[in-house]
Design a protein around this nucleic acid. Sequence first.
DNA 1: TTCCGTGCAAATCTTTTGCACGGTC
DNA 2: GACCGTGCAAAAGATTTGCACGGAA
Lengths: 154, 154
Amino acid sequence: MSQVTERADRSEQWADRAEAALAAAGHRRGGARRAVLELLGGQECALTALEIEDQLRGGRRAASRASIYRVLDELEGLRLVQRVETGQAMVRYERVCDAEEHHHHLVCQRCGIVIPFSDPALERAISSISERVPLAVSEHEIVLRGQCRDCTAA
Amino acid sequence: MSQVTERADRSEQWADRAEAALAAAGHRRGGARRAVLELLGGQECALTALEIEDQLRGGRRAASRASIYRVLDELEGLRLVQRVETGQAMVRYERVCDAEEHHHHLVCQRCGIVIPFSDPALERAISSISERVPLAVSEHEIVLRGQCRDCTAA
DNA sequence: TTCCGTGCAAATCTTTTGCACGGTC
DNA sequence: GACCGTGCAAAAGATTTGCACGGAA
């Protein structure tokens, strides 16, 4: 099976799993939500609410901005989606996935591009800290900022 | 010299150094800016613009919200202040200090309290990553979220 | 005297909310 | 048929901007 197909499968998996979780939580189905789920499922990294709105208007089924925020909020509550604070004007959202896909973000301060990265040693350091800190840690977020290669070249 | 006095000195140092940097960058003096500098200099951790406004109105010299945002923006540009994205509604700001005071943040998702922490192993992991990543890293930010002891007890 | 820093008020922009309609269960 | 999800429009809230005045250089 090709990598592309694998990814498509995994995306569908996530959207389906999310819809099942929503149903289990007592939610009904709806077009706007399904569209957001499918879009997020196919994304590797974080999108803003406005990017989601644009992409949905461009393809699939359009959804109103209010519905997008509502869906994202529900999904965040169920831990299916997480917010990413890139330090730009808007909050970004991405699907929560299994440990092996867990990642953090690089943000270019010039062009704003967001690039995912992951590092096992970093995760170990975080776990270790989490045990020694006066807080029951349930999640962590790491952002590295700087200038990306394209912007450095330009 | 007592710890308290040391801290007071360090705060003044920061405010003075910041004012010098501002002057070097061609800025004139001003009351609102001085008030913000003195307040931030005396803080160990990050404040929101609105918290700054409240504290200034309570003591020292009051400053308008617009001026506070303008001052924070200037200071951020000069790398004297850094934004902290705690994932709450508002951005927080804190003074940038020397390496030994460099820290990150714990955020309670229930009560919103922000607690600083630091960890050398974590910094090493970050430095190591910074060299291997497709971005010229100039800063990093780490936030651990969870529930603080008070909220767990309550 | 020139120009910048400040305050006030208005504008901007993201995110949230109230309400009515239509679809899901 | 009851209730929830959705869209629209208005509201809310943080941050930014335009403008005029007073103080710093």
